[in-house]
Structures are given as structure tokens and as C-alpha cells.
Amino acid sequence: MKKNKIIFWIATAIIILWEGIMPLSTSLFMPEYVTVGTRPLGYPDYFAYTLIIFKVFGVLAIAYPKAPAKLKEWAYAGLTFNLIYAFISHVCVDKNIGFMLMPLVFLGILALSYFYKDKLTSV
């Protein structure tokens, strides 16, 4: 039980930092860098701001222990779609292996968080 909880919170903390805090802090403290990742892929500027908003809401739903289970499921699904489409965008547009692998690494961490969330609730 304790091992499951530790693995869940480490994986979840990485997701919170990468998908929630980093984008939010960039938009607040360095707004000129908000669209650095999306503009070269051909997305409009408002898309980057929308991503930030939904990533922050997603990690809040995942991290808040009393959030309804359905909300957590939607948050995991939304972040999963985000990472899958980030991978696809990099494959189709810039073909940079580093940019392609990064979303897959975080998708694996997100899957670990999801898997151990289910282990915690089933005990």
C-alpha cells in the first residue's frame, strides 16, 4: 500500500510540475515564451493559452484528493490526448526525435500515475 502511494505521488508530482506549474509560470513570468512550442508547429497563438488553462485544470483535478472520480478520468483523458497529439504534431512537422520522445516519456509517467491511482482506490 505504501509503495503504491509513493509511486503514485512521485509520478503525479512530475505531471503536476511539467503539465501544470511550468506552463502557468511561463505564462505569468515570461509571456513572450508561451507560444515558442506551438507556433513552429503551425498552431495559432490562442491555442497555447488554451492548452495552459486546460493543463492547469487537469492537474488540479488529478491532484485534488476529493475530486470526483469522473472528473479525474476526464483530466487523465485530456492530458493523454494532449501528449499524444503533441507527439503526432512533432512527427508530422519538425521530425526532431527529442521533441517526439518528450511527450511519450510524460505519457508513460501519466500512465504510471493513472495505474497507481487505480491501485490506491481498489485497496
Rank of each mutant, 00 (worst) to 15 (best):
F115N: 06
I109E: 08
I62D: 07
Y64L: 15
L71V: 14
N96C: 03
K117A: 12
L112K: 07
I109T: 10
G58M: 02
F87S: 03
C92M: 13
K72R: 14
E73A: 11
F115C: 05
K55F: 04
K55M: 08
A75H: 05
G58K: 00
I97G: 02
S113W: 08
M100E: 15
A86D: 02
L120H: 01
I84W: 08
A111E: 05
P68M: 12
L60F: 15
K119R: 12
Y76P: 08
V56F: 03
K66F: 12
V91K: 00
K70T: 13
L60Y: 07
F106C: 05
A86I: 01
G98R: 04
P103A: 04
L120Y: 01
Y114F: 15
V59F: 04
F106P: 03
G78N: 06
A77C: 11
P103E: 04
A63R: 02
N82C: 00
Y116V: 05
K117D: 15
V59L: 06
T50C: 02
N82S: 12
F99R: 10
A77L: 15
L110C: 10
Y76I: 14
A61R: 01
C92K: 12
G108T: 09
I97E: 08
L107W: 10
E73P: 00
A75R: 05
W74C: 01
G58D: 00
I88F: 12
I88V: 15
V59I: 13
F54M: 09
Y76C: 08
A61N: 02
C92V: 15
L107C: 08
Y64M: 14
L104T: 06
F115W: 13
W74G: 00
L71I: 13
K66A: 12
K119A: 03
W74V: 05
F57H: 00
K66N: 14
A86W: 00
I88T: 07
I97H: 05
I84F: 09
